[in-house]
Design a binder for these strands. Structure first.
Length: 394
RNA sequence: GCGUCGGUGGCGGAGUGGUCAAUCGCACUAGACUGUAAAUCUGGCGCCUUCGGGCUUCGAAGGUUCGAAUCCUUCCCGGCGCACCA
């Protein structure tokens, strides 16, 4: 039990504030009210999002009452965390649509039927101006300006809208209403979560602890972000997911094990040592990692298949087994087929690829020389390293 | 309200009358090297093309000019400063 609590408060954890409060509450043996909030902004969930969700799951499994808060109201305002620019407000319809998608994705990590789901428009929407003024009076402008991203935007002369200051108040108010013992979130949410602590105190509610999880970096070691294209999405197909993990830099292997798998902490430590002294090849470690993560989201069978497929296509440079197949009439132009299948974005791109000798017959290795090439027989086309298309004549 | 600076390709950011489809970095992509690792190197990176070239882009709409991303007018959006806050 003791070690379980220890694991809860350390693995993948960036910070627990205040630590003693968390320890006391957990050691009391009571079932605690723990919550996690997420704004359905429409972004696809990636492995980074899975970290607090997994932590939430761990708390749930430890017998605590878990509340999943959907930022149905706050999503329309937009969290300024990590934003360089003003976020476009979302409509109610979009928020609903987004949440449906989120639910499906979050479900892959956490069984939502076992948690309480709440929507924060329930209590944020009815607030009237006097209530808001009251909330706003609990914080100072200076406190808000402490946030590094506000500071940066000030310095860079980028706009900060007044309502963005209200964001921490709103998510903080969630804590007051839900009267919770603890909140979970990515470490980028620390400020927002602490605002909730302050508000709980002001409103004379119970005091919560805040647990922030470490942020996971993208496959290239930079911040996981759509703009860097270094995300592994929970919805990625097994082959994609496996491939993305294999293409990540070595330095991320251990952090990923810690944050994204159930591999025992001790085992991870051993692996770390072996990687260090060279007795374990990074590729091997990575394959294990890929296998474990893919298993988590798609099951062991799919993971195994993805691995086989990977070895086949990339290690042995053979033709993958999950080929896209399309049927065409004789003498169709290759370009048209590929455009149709969205394997190529434009005719210009196609011409470039042909010029670069990137297009070939996957079976014979024969290179397609002409941009006007037509289909005369069944063929498996290979573009670059990973685009394949099997073309069959009707 | 006044003044001032600015709005450029997926992003950041050059360019300030012709040589601009627009330097460069990131992302992407093809190839070399590999472990689909990193680093590195070489190409590409608006659209269409009979490969000659053509077409549409630089907040929006007009205008000046042989010619505009670049100048002018109006409008929209933002930053900063001043004023207002009796």
């Amino acid at each position: 039990m003791k070690s379980d609590i220890d694991e809860l408060l350390t693995r993948g954890v960036a910070n627990v504030i205040p630590r003693d409060l968390a320890l006391n509450k957990l050691n009391s043996g009571d079932s605690l009210r723990i919550y996690f909030g997420i704004d359905p902004t429409g972004a696809k969930l990636h492995l980074g999002h899975s970290v607090p969700l997994r932590k939430l799951k761990a708390f749930s499994e430890a017998g605590h009452h878990v509340i999943f808060v959907v930022g149905s109201f706050t999503a329309m305002i937009g969290d300024p965390s990590g934003q360089d620019t003003l976020r476009e407000p979302l409509t109610k319809g979009q928020v609903e649509e987004n949440f449906k998608n989120y639910k499906e994705q979050a479900q892959k990590v956490l069984d939502l039927s076992k948690v309480e789901i709440r929507y924060n428009h329930e209590w944020l929407e009815p607030l009237r101006f006097p209530d808001i003024i009251n909330l706003a009076s609990k914080f100072t402008v200076q406190q808000m300006l402490q946030r590094d991203m506000f500071e940066r935007r000030m310095r860079e002369g980028k706009p900060i809208a007044l309502h963005e200051f209200l964001y921490p108040l709103m998510v903080g108010y969630d804590s007051v209403v839900l009267d919770v013992d603890g909140e979970m979130g990515g470490s980028d949410q620390e400020f927002n979560m602490l605002a909730g602590r302050d508000l709980q105190k002001s409103f004379g509610k119970r005091e919560k602890f805040v647990l922030t999880t470490k942020l996971i970096e993208g496959t290239d070691g930079r911040k996981m972000s759509k703009t860097y294209n270094n995300c592994i999405y929970l919805e990625d197909k097994p082959n994609d997911m496996y491939g993305k993990i294999m293409s990540m830099i070595d330095a991320q292997i251990i952090p990923y094990f810690e944050l994204c798998t159930n591999t025992p902490t001790l085992e991870i430590k051993e692996m770390s040592v072996k990687l260090e002294d060279g007795s374990l090849h990074p590729k091997e470690a990575k394959m294990q990692l890929a296998r474990e993560i893919v298993s988590l989201y798609h099951g062991e069978k799919s993971a195994k298949e993805a691995e086989e497929n990977f070895i086949k296509t990339f290690s042995n440079r053979e033709i993958p087994n999950d080929l896209m197949v399309t049927e065409v009439v004789l003498r169709s132009k290759l370009v048209d087929i590929l455009l149709e299948q969205k394997l190529v974005e434009s005719k210009s791109e196609w011409r470039r690829l042909v010029d670069e000798k990137a297009v070939s017959d996957a079976e014979t290795g024969e290179i397609v020389e002409s941009a006007d090439q037509i289909v005369e027989k069944n063929i498996i086309l290979k573009i670059g390293k990973r685009r394949f298309l099997k073309i069959e004549i009707l």
